[in-house]
Design a protein around this nucleic acid. Structure first.
Lengths: 141, 141
DNA sequence: TTAAAGTTGACAATATTACTTGGATATAAT
DNA sequence: ATTATATCCAAGTAATATTGTCAACTTTAA
């Protein structure tokens, strides 16, 4: 039940964009430097984030990426689902017509569905804005 | 954020033991047949479940495994943690002295900790007994 | 004593993850 | 125009984790 680096790096990167919201595009290079991540790898993550409408890009010098919405309107859930796919703990809980082999609905399915909804509840309730505020609180300790 | 087969198979197997609670040991073979899983693989899972005190084994003919406690006193959380380790979404949320490279506490850590506690809350609130009752409800639809 | 069942450790196949490489294309500043 | 700075795109690859298999061994009940 681990988050992959996709999810973690993506979250860190989106947090950077959130902090610079309204200040024009941020380049991958500057994020990679800041967070000590691979530039090329981050590119791929941003590519999917863009595909999913969470960021827009501007190419060329002084280009980079920007959030499409205000940080308070982007949830951690959107980001994680975008990068990691649905957080289904198992395929049988997915929506796309997967069918268990066993005729009777398996019991673990009920459990897995509960886990999924628990995770969703948490990640959909946290916005990028919340992250910024959390960070400020930690700083002021 | 997927559960591995360890967790899923283990859960299914423990459910079988729960249904047979009080009726003596159940062999791996019969569970493997019932749930269509590999016998040898299940062995490994039961080995760790035993190490963690969730089941006891009796060897020899008519042997097998039994729950150490009543199904109402064994949670899904115990089983999953036993098989998959702590469900930490990332290492920095773990308890064993892991330190982030960055001096300031990273913000994603706060988010990850929230996810973890959300998952724990769900899985620790479901017992094997609950699973049995859920199954009965589904049957009677 | 024999057959059923658990125990152990090594290992192999497969899948996924986490990148790397190499180039093409777009844009802004000079 | 040229150059520096970016994104964009498609493969390829190395590392790691997952998901098992296999074989030899030990214990125990019938």
């Amino acid at each position: 039940m681990k988050l992959s680096t996709k999810g973690r790096y993506g979250l860190m990167a989106m947090y950077q964009l959130a902090m610079a919201y309204g200040e024009g595009p941020i380049s991958i290079k500057s994020i990679a430097d800041e967070e000590d991540l691979s530039e090329n790898y981050l590119e791929q993550l941003f590519s999917t984030l863009k595909k999913n409408g969470l960021v827009v890009s501007s190419r060329g010098a002084y280009g980079g990426y920007m959030l499409t919405r205000h940080p308070k309107d982007i949830t951690v859930g959107e980001i994680l689902r975008s990068l990691e796919g649905e957080n289904y703990p198992a395929d049988c809980v997915s929506s796309d017509g997967f069918e268990c082999k066993k005729e009777d609905m398996c019991v673990t399915k009920v459990v897995l569905a509960k886990i999924k909804s628990g995770i969703d509840q948490v990640i959909d309730s946290i916005t990028l804005q919340d992250m910024i505020e959390d960070a400020n609180m930690v700083k002021n300790l």
